[in-house]
């Protein structure tokens, strides 16, 4: 049996290839040229890993990377705890203002980064003015960046955890209570193991978003407290160097890895493995 290939089919196939090329060629070019021996971007002079070496020896890059990791780690942990708690509260309890809270919890996901950034900057300026009046001197830096990242990450964690909670059969928790578990035991032995894939998925998503963020961070960072993406952005303004390709490639690989890991967790690996993890941590 043969299928006739019409011109429409061919056009659709071509379009598909075009779309993929449009997406991935720039990334491919970036990665390839990060291994370019030439000092000039765009002229291939042979394979070399010199830019990776140069980047990893640059104290400014290392400092920015260190800041990025600190901010990412702190904001991920805080946002995961707060986001999971918020998801549980909205899913479980009927309290005054629940619907309103449910609605605005996801606002940070849809409002533009720039708006978020300006809001944060204004907030910190106002807050610092108030605190400074009382004595201590605060300024923009790692602290303000971390707080901002926590603020936008809570929403993402809450969304992922709530999706998982939505699939959870409420009678499982009742069964635990019925079988003499108190509230805490019910949470630790039944609820948490069952929503753990969502919690870990949300945490990895938060980590990725924190590591990638430029706009919000650029607004709320202070002198000498830049993160890696913001540093790269600054470099670009002074002209594109092959070193940027190398940094970008490193970040690209890290991001893809984290997102992939997040998807794996959200798909839900074997539940029993999660229990093992819980058992080990307690």
């Amino acid at each position: 049996m043969t299928t006739r290939t019409t011109s429409l089919d061919r056009a659709l196939a071509a379009n598909t290839w075009f779309v993929y090329a449009f997406f991935y060629l720039p990334i491919l070019v970036l990665v390839v040229f990060s291994f370019n021996a030439s000092t000039r971007v765009g002229i291939w002079r042979g394979f070399s890993t010199r830019w990776y070496g140069e980047v990893l020896r640059n104290p400014e890059v290392l400092d920015a990377l260190k800041n990025s990791l600190i901010v990412a780690a702190l904001s991920t942990v805080a946002a995961t705890v707060i986001g999971t708690a918020a998801a549980l509260a909205i899913d479980r309890y009927r309290f005054r203002g629940r619907r309103g809270l449910d609605g605005i919890l996801y606002l940070p996901i849809i409002i533009p980064d720039v708006t978020m950034a300006v809001m944060m900057l204004l907030f910190f300026a106002r807050a610092f003015a108030l605190i400074d009046a009382a004595g201590p001197r605060f300024q923009l830096g790692i602290g303000s960046i971390t707080l901002s990242h926590i603020a936008f990450n809570i929403s993402f964690v809450a969304v992922v955890v709530r999706a998982r909670l939505g699939q959870l059969d409420g009678s499982l928790e009742e069964a635990a209570r019925d079988l003499y578990a108190n509230s805490w035991q019910t949470f630790r032995r039944v609820t948490l193991p069952l929503i753990l894939p969502g919690v870990l998925g949300g945490a990895l998503l938060a980590l990725t978003l924190s590591l990638d963020d430029v706009v919000v961070t650029a607004f709320v960072s202070g002198p000498g407290s830049t993160t890696l993406p913001v540093y790269v952005f600054g470099l670009v303004r002074r002209g594109v160097s092959p070193a940027i390709n190398a940094i970008s490639t490193i970040m690209l690989v890290a991001s893809i890895g984290l997102v992939a890991l997040s998807l794996v967790f959200q798909r839900g690996p074997k539940a029993s493995r999660n229990t093992e993890m819980i058992k080990e941590t307690t």
């Binding site: 059969d169 009678s171 499982l172 069964a175 019925d178 069952l194 539940a271 029993s272 229990t275």
Partner: peptide
């Protein structure tokens, strides 16, 4: 001092 058999059984899926 009571125990329940649930309509959906409510067996814990992550336990043997």
């Amino acid at each position: 001092p009571v125990n329940t058999v649930f309509q959906s059984y409510a067996l814990f899926p992550h336990m043997t």
